[in-house]
């Protein structure tokens, strides 16, 4: 490993040595699986490959509930069944957990394509909502602090209204209350393959608005921790208030906001499961449906819980890396926080 890579590597993980390697290996496997799956089901990619004369490379026509022929779900299930009927005199204390493990593996193998497709929507909803939400959150936070009496109150009312009402209620309001889904379906772009269904777009709208309010609060707190003398200094050079905020306060404040922002990211990853209630086939909804089909609720929720955990941990690691990357001596990462 080169010296530069070594230093950068050691900056990422507070988890040291061997443990870190295991961490990265597991995370790498998880994401390889997800990305391969997403590519495999991507109609756009499939279309492209067909267009250049490579038909049938990907299986975008595969229904997500269909199992893959090359996954040994049946074998796992068979082992579990055999063990359950004929334990060969081994104590039930050993056999029962083994049976359960094989059943779990069978279920995982069987539901894996569906869960990968669900995870795609979960990540898609979360990342887009966080991204769009940021564009509302920054102006909202800035007006809240620096705005006049009216604009700052409007900003306050917005954040309090959104934070003060349940996310599920907001989702239902946009989906059932406003005819937003019908409106969105009217757009021609929705017919393009690869675009999510109208319900997913409604979910993105609702999550964007919801997360923008939370992000605004994190950013407001971060901006307020920037020394007011910084803006005074900017103004004393001749910068206008807006220039000072843009070039001096925001670059510092947004760095302070990263830990809070990570928190919101992690929250939204999990709360995006509420989209299941407006028919968006994201991770949680897939799990619920599989549970209803197989009655293995405990098992499928265990599997899906592990998937959420993996998503959350990788997010936290990435954000940690981002934070270290943008750190400037004296800004954003006070000495001793390690």
């Amino acid at each position: 490993m080169t010296e530069a890579a070594e230093t950068r590597g050691s900056a990422v993980g507070r988890v040291g040595g061997r443990k870190r390697q295991v961490f990265l290996a597991v995370g790498g496997l998880f994401w390889t699986w997800l990305l391969a799956r997403w590519a495999y089901h991507n109609t756009l990619l499939d279309g492209l490959l067909t267009a250049v004369g490579l038909p049938d490379v990907l299986r975008s026509d595969l229904g997500v509930s269909q199992r893959e022929p090359w996954l040994p779900a049946d074998w796992f299930a068979g082992v579990a069944a055999n063990l359950a009927t004929d334990a060969g005199g081994v104590s039930v204390l050993v056999v029962d957990p083994l049976v359960w493990l094989f059943e779990l593996a069978a279920l995982a193998a069987e539901s894996e394509p569906a869960l990968a497709a669900g995870a795609f929507l979960t990540v898609y909803l979360t990342v887009l909502s966080m991204f769009f939400g940021l564009f509302i959150a920054v102006p909202a936070a800035v007006t809240r602090i620096y705005g006049g009496p009216i604009s700052s109150r409007i900003s306050l009312a917005y954040t309090e209204l959104i934070r003060g009402t349940p996310l599920l209620a907001q989702l239902f309001f946009f989906y059932f209350g406003l005819p937003l889904a019908g409106f969105i379906s009217g757009f021609r772009v929705m017919e393009v393959s690869g675009m999510p269904r109208a319900a997913a777009v409604v979910a993105i709208v609702a999550f964007t608005i919801n997360s923008s309010a939370y992000q605004a609060e994190y950013i407001r707190a971060a901006l307020q921790s920037v020394d007011p003398g910084q803006l005074t200094a900017a103004r004393s050079v001749g910068l206008s208030r807006l220039q000072g905020i843009r070039h001096v306060v925001l670059p510092q404040g947004l760095r302070y906001a990263i830990p809070g922002w990570t928190n919101e990211f992690v929250y939204l990853l999990k709360y995006s499961s509420l989209a299941a209630f407006i028919t968006v086939p994201e991770l949680f909804r897939r799990a619920r449906n599989i549970g209803s089909d197989t009655f293995q609720f405990t098992d499928i929720y265990l599997i899906v819980g592990l998937l959420y955990l993996a998503l959350v941990i990788t997010t936290a690691m990435l954000m940690n890396r981002l934070e270290r990357r943008v750190t400037i001596p004296g800004v954003g990462m006070p000495a001793g926080r390690d």
């Binding site: 020394d227 003398g229 910084q230 005074t232 200094a233 900017a234 004393s236 050079v237 001749g238 910068l239 220039q243 070039h247 001096v248 670059p251 510092q252 760095r255 400037i328 004296g330 800004v331």
Partner: peptide, 24 residues
């Protein structure tokens, strides 16, 4: 010139000077 210096903490010494030159 301020008692507590009030340099822009996120900018280098050069960046502190160029900000006003560029923006103002």
């Amino acid at each position: 010139v301020f008692q507590d210096f009030s340099l822009f903490a996120h900018l280098t010494a050069r960046g502190n000077i160029t900000l006003g030159l560029r923006e103002v």
